[in-house]
């Protein structure tokens, strides 16, 4: 049972890291602000989501589980809000500048 949990954690956290690496590569390599933001928010949402999913079975209590999910939810909300704001700012800068 612990082996299964270990395998599950390693697989999901590794998958999460793949998204973070891909998001970082996109942030550096993509040509314009919108695609860079797209890469970045994908890393936040899916990468962190998978890491949190992998850590859930290791939480010590129900409170720990709820905290992990809350952290993911708060990061989702903040990056979902920051992404469009940055995109709007970049578009205004491109138009006005």
């Amino acid at each position: 049972m612990t082996l299964l949990v270990d395998v599950f954690t390693v697989l999901t956290v590794a998958a999460g890291i793949v998204f973070f690496v891909a998001g970082t590569a996109g942030l550096i390599r993509f040509p314009d602000t919108s695609s860079r933001l797209h890469a970045l928010t994908k890393a936040d949402h899916l990468g962190l989501g998978l890491v949190v999913l992998g850590l859930l079975p290791r939480a010590e209590s129900l409170g720990g589980v709820l905290r992990l999910v809350a952290i993911w939810g708060l990061v989702l909300a903040s990056s979902a809000a920051a992404g469009p704001m940055l995109a709007r700012l970049a578009r205004r800068g491109a138009r006005g500048g």
Partner: peptide, 14 residues
């Protein structure tokens, strides 16, 4: 409207 308005209403209680 938009993300900032939503965040400013949803986030403070949390």
């Amino acid at each position: 409207d938009g993300p900032l308005a939503l965040l400013a209403r949803v986030l403070p209680p949390i």
